[in-house]
Design a protein around this nucleic acid. Structure first.
Lengths: 341, 341
DNA sequence: CTCGTCTTTGAAAGCGCTTACATCTAGTGC
DNA sequence: GCACTAGATGTAAGCGCTTTCAAAGACGAG
């Protein structure tokens, strides 16, 4: 008899039906919450389910309804609160929409393209964070077969994109540093590494232009802790002359500040340092780090929403959706420390 | 014809077979990497796959082989680096084992038990982090139907457990603080909140007993930032008299230190503060926080390994597996600051 | 050319669940 | 008691892929 001895060592819908004395259609109706079942029959089925410890095979249902009811999420890695916040927002909203989250991290994978194709066979769509660890070809290749939403990237044909605002807040941050009287500002980060950093540098330039000043060329660096220490060493060695470092993220800024302090330089007296992201440490260090806060959790939630919309309908949004960011002033730029911040 | 028009708007194995002029069995062999196919036929199939942008429906394969090839991971939440590290270790090792990761976060869910049962229909086993957000009944109920591995919890019949060492390192940490001459130590955390905190307090007590001292009753508090500020307020108000706070985690310790500084008290001169976890901020603050480092990434990897072993075989381990932890000495306990730490 | 052996390919059955439509049952009105 | 209707339940087909075993093809030896 089909299915009765199925699922090695486990019960199937057939064994539940037999035990409850009903058809498998009735068992299915009970488990799907259909109102077309009498209370008495429902009770008999649930009793059989509990006695047999029946655990449905989700794949069978997914095949029958032709949906996995799962969203894929591809991130470069998970170090730092940005990723955690994004993931929490995504998972929470996906759960509200009745979707599981299948997570894949790109770093450490020999063949990201292949891993992603494998992921795509198991989910209804994929959201991914634009980054150097994920080749540009990945979203485009995927979009031919599955709905795709790119986070912190740019929209393309068949690929929807969402991001947080970069240029305007970077302009406001830079203008704030300039208003403190600093004139030899340096932007640390690589505008060619992705649209986010590119737009932050654009804001940096725009703030200078408003004051008829010329912005310095960027000091290209990756955004890890070690790069921050190296950057500070260049300042300490006199290779880099600046009165304010506008760092493309907090991790870089915090490492710079720490190494400067070790080298006998004070922030903001000798030079100001500002960052981007408002990570937890930013408010614990002395002086507190001036930075920009991104609504990262909301970004994750929006990614789940947009992905779901693309999976369930032809609701196509062509333009990149942008969430606002917010300047957070602390003491590292030269502001008077707020004792309660 | 069955399957030819399947997968709404997408190709199926039947359309690939038709286009390549072979049977669906041959298409399946090619995609599964079987060596029972000639190179010429393989090429014809792959060409058809690319032309049709064929994306297999993973659920169909899972049903046929009766495995989802996915591990479930249930965490309370994702705030803080402990969770990120755990998740990175888990995902990385699961990927090496050919398994996807389906992530679920307990916080914010109205009915965790129901959410977990739904998760269990879609994965081959579940690893979960013991915490207050996840009812004790969850692993036991699940274990009747699916392999379960509990992280930072205790083994039970049918439930395997893995953890990091707590008591011995807590004892060493406390002994270190006592060796600095402190005698009015207070442990901040709730030993009833779970086996980890319970064991850390046990180590706190043991270190006192070695010196024929009586350990103070624990100050019960949750481990969030806000609780740390409240704890510091009690010290500042004179409600709590102590010369060293042994905090159950870094988040608490860091918030205490910040509020104490705001209140005009100095660490470690007025009182020492030590934590647990060695989060990034611990090495950025002034003074650096003395703490205990857990191999969290390895813990996540071990969870994935053990879960896989339970899914694929009857390889039953009855005892809780324990990974070692490591004391990290910085200046907050009273040690001389190491300029390079 | 025939036969034997090995390799490759195809036909058929099946994995466990969903659901449309047919059938059965219970209740009500005449 | 009979006819009708609404609600509940069952039968049968099918979702897309895997894999066993039979059949076909290719190759080499006599």
């Amino acid at each position: 008899m089909a299915g009765t001895q199925g699922q090695k060592g486990g019960a199937t819908i057939y064994s539940v039906a037999e035990r409850a004395g009903v058809s498998i259609a009735t068992v299915s109706r009970v488990l799907q919450g259909s109102d077309k079942v009498s209370a008495k029959t429902r009770q008999r089925v649930m009793t059989a389910v509990e006695e047999l410890r029946y655990m449905p095979l989700g794949a069978a249902r997914s095949l029958a309804v032709r949906h996995h009811e799962a969203h894929g999420l591809l991130l470069p890695e998970l170090s730092g609160p940005y990723y955690s916040e994004l993931l929490m927002g995504f998972e929470s909203r996906a759960a509200e929409l009745g979707q599981s989250v299948v997570l894949m991290l790109a770093e450490g994978k020999d063949d990201v393209g292949r891993a992603v194709r494998s992921l795509a066979t198991r989910v209804d769509g994929i959201a991914l964070l634009a980054s150097a660890a994920i080749p540009d070809s990945v979203p485009e290749t995927l979009a031919g077969s599955k709905p795709v939403v790119v986070i912190a990237g740019e929209a393309k044909p068949d690929v929807e994109a969402i991001t947080t605002e970069n240029a305007a807040s970077a302009k406001a941050l830079t203008a704030h540093v300039l208003a403190h009287g600093r004139r030899r500002l340096v932007f640390a980060g690589d505008p060619d590494s992705g649209p986010d950093i590119r737009d932050r540098y654009a804001g940096f330039v725009a703030a200078h232009e408003d004051l008829r000043l010329t912005a310095a060329a960027p000091v290209r660096t990756d955004l890890r802790e070690s790069a921050g220490a190296e950057l500070a060493d260049r300042v300490l060695a006199g290779e880099l002359t600046t009165d304010a470092l506008v760092c493309a993220n907090d991790e870089l800024a915090l490492a710079v500040m720490k190494r400067l302090r070790q080298g006998g330089r004070t922030v903001p007296d000798d030079l100001a340092v500002v960052g981007w992201d408002d990570v937890m440490t930013a408010r614990y260090v002395e002086p507190g780090l001036t930075t920009v806060r991104q609504p990262v959790r909301e970004l994750g939630a929006l990614a789940a929403e947009r992905l779901h919309a693309r999976i369930t309908s032809a609701d196509i949004v062509d333009e990149t959706q942008v969430l606002p960011t917010q300047l957070v002033l602390r003491a590292s730029c030269g502001c008077t420390p707020d004792p309660l911040a």
